[in-house]
Structure formats: structure tokens, C-alpha cells
Computed example of a mutant assay.
Amino acid sequence: MKTSRGYHCSIAKPFEMWAKLPVTSLTPFTFQDFPEHTACILWFAGCNMACAYCHNPDLVTGAFKRLPSDSIERFLTSRQGLLEGVVLSGGECTLSSALPWLCRKLKAKGFKVKIDTNGSRPERLEELLNEGLVDFIALDFKAPPSKYMPITGLKNWALFERSLRMVVKAGIGREIRTTVHTDLLDEGDINEMTSLLEELSYRGNFVVQGFVHGPTLGNLPPQGRNFNKALLIERPFPFVFRNMAKQ
């Protein structure tokens, strides 16, 4: 089916497609997660990373039950013309082969689409970008190359770097963000990461998210020290700090 907006949305086997989408819960309204847009959030279970500071261990392990597809469909239909966008978060939404199908469906309903991703599936990002199926990408830059595997549990830095380069060049809204627990990442690591972003001519926000103590995938203790923002090297793009202790 081709809509007036030009997006193709196959409806031949919707139940099979929904079965490939491990959506486990829904946040009906947010004005903080999709910059400048009202939105809802679909939360995906499952992740291919094992970051110790992750505050969503149940999402990572897929412990939650899936939300019935008919309830998601009803909700989205009821919000057409009321909400501007849908955020696909998790977990890691790009692990699902049906993600492009879902994005086409959302676009056909008139929603803007934002995805939160760890960048481990560049081929899926490329498909979404090439088809114009995503309007905003929030990319988690977990660590510099030397610490990428110890922090994420994944060895293939090259896949993330491909995603990073793709997002930097994308002509859509984007932000790159890093979560800092000072026992894992220090100011020198952040300077190394932002140096790479500068080399790639990145000009969006670089978000530094401070670790908030609580239950995590790796049961991390509180940070041994505060992060010192004064040690960061100035770059030609803005730093945005969230949940950071005052220095």
C-alpha cells in the first residue's frame, strides 16, 4: 500500500511482522524524549550489549512480556493528529528485522519517528535513512575503541564506527550521547571520543549523562568521584550535561 505521503506499508502479514517486534511496554506521552515534539515511546525488549551501568536490566534480558499488537495499534490510531512522533527505544530496537516495516507503518499514520540506538546494526540504520523512515536518531557512543569491548561486551568497534559516521552525515535531527560512570570512563576518554567527532565534522549536541546510582545490569556501586567538566577540551559542537553533579 502506498499512502499519500509516499510511504509503503505492507499489510499482507501484519501478525507475522508484529511477532518480530518485541515491544514490551508503551509510554503514552513525553515531551522530553523527542526534541521539540510531543511523542509516545514504544519500548523494545532485548539488547546485544551488556553495559554494567544499564538501568533497564529487565529490558536487556527480555524478562517482560510483549505488549499485544492490537493494543498498540489501537493506541497509535487514537493518537493520530494528537501526537507528533513515536520514539522507538529499549533495549535495542534495531535488532528487529521488522523495524523498517514498523517505521513505514508509523510514517503512513503521519507520525515522525525517532530511534534510540547503540549503533551496532549499521545496515539497519542505512536502510532506515535511505528510505527516509526516521526523523531523529539518538546514538549512544559507549566508549572509545580501547574500552568499547570491556564496557559493551561487543568486540566489533568497526560496526559502531560505521553507524557513527552515518549518523554524523545524516541530514536529520540527531544527538550523540555518552553515559559516564567515573570508574569506567574518565575525562580523557571523553576527550578522545569528542576528538573523533570533531574529525568527522559533527555539529550536533554531545550529551554527557551522569550515572545515577540504582539497580543496574552490572550492580555497579556509586561512582568513586565526580566527573570534572573543567577537564573537557572545547569542541565546535555543544556539550549538554544531564544528571551531572555540580563541580
Rank of each mutant, 00 (worst) to 15 (best):
P14Q: 14
S146N: 11
I115Q: 01
I176N: 00
G62H: 10
H213N: 11
R235A: 02
T178S: 11
L164V: 05
L154T: 01
E175S: 04
L159F: 09
P68S: 13
V168A: 12
A108Q: 15
Q247G: 10
A63C: 11
G46N: 02
L164S: 08
P68R: 13
G81S: 01
P22R: 05
E192S: 15
S25G: 10
A45G: 15
K105C: 08
L129H: 11
G210C: 10
F136D: 00
P68N: 14
F34G: 00
D183M: 10
T24R: 04
S195Y: 14
G224N: 09
V86D: 02
P100D: 11
P14S: 07
N205H: 05
E198G: 04
L185W: 04
L129Q: 06
E123Q: 12
V134H: 01
C9F: 05
F34P: 02
T216Q: 05
R165C: 14
V240L: 04
V60T: 13
L82M: 07
L102R: 04
Q223G: 03
C47S: 09
F111K: 01
Y148K: 07
V60N: 02
F15P: 02
S4Q: 12
A158S: 15
L83E: 09
I115C: 04
E92V: 13
P144V: 07
A170S: 14
D183C: 06
G188S: 06
L133W: 01
W18A: 02
A108K: 00
T179C: 14
H55A: 10
M193C: 02
L42A: 01
L67G: 02
F31M: 11
T94D: 05
L164G: 00
H213Y: 14
V180M: 07
W157A: 06
R104K: 07
S25P: 13
